[in-house]
């Protein structure tokens, strides 16, 4: 339950907190986006821990955030592609 998650997080260092949240979020994200799960989890871990806890509790919110992250990632990769062409 949430109490267990919150108390486990509270006893961990900030870096461990992000790692734990990542370990919990990763399989959920992997189910939605198998190929991009590592990058999307990395993106979402930049959010506040309190927001990440909400995502863990709400599959709909997580699904929405993952869609949002994929859009940002694709836009970013498109930009990087253009940059690479410029360099070449």
């Amino acid at each position: 339950g949430r109490c267990l998650i919150a108390s486990t997080l509270a006893s961990a260092s900030p870096e461990d907190q992000k790692k734990m949240l990542g370990e919990w979020l990763f399989p959920l994200i992997q189910a939605l986006q198998p190929t991009l799960a590592s990058k999307i989890t990395g993106m979402l871990l930049e959010m506040d821990n309190s927001e990440l806890l909400l995502l863990l509790e709400s599959p709909e919110s997580l699904c929405y955030k993952v869609d949002e992250a994929v859009a940002v990632l694709e836009a970013c990769q498109a930009q990087q592609g253009k940059l690479a062409k410029c360099i070449i």
Partner: peptide
């Protein structure tokens, strides 16, 4: 316009220590 965005986002892999915070100045 930010050159550091090339390596963004940091990837998370289960079982591997998370390094993402090192990219963020407190």
């Amino acid at each position: 316009s930010n050159g550091s965005s090339i390596n963004w986002p940091p990837e998370f892999h289960p079982g591997v220590p998370w390094k993402g915070l090192q990219n963020i100045d407190p």
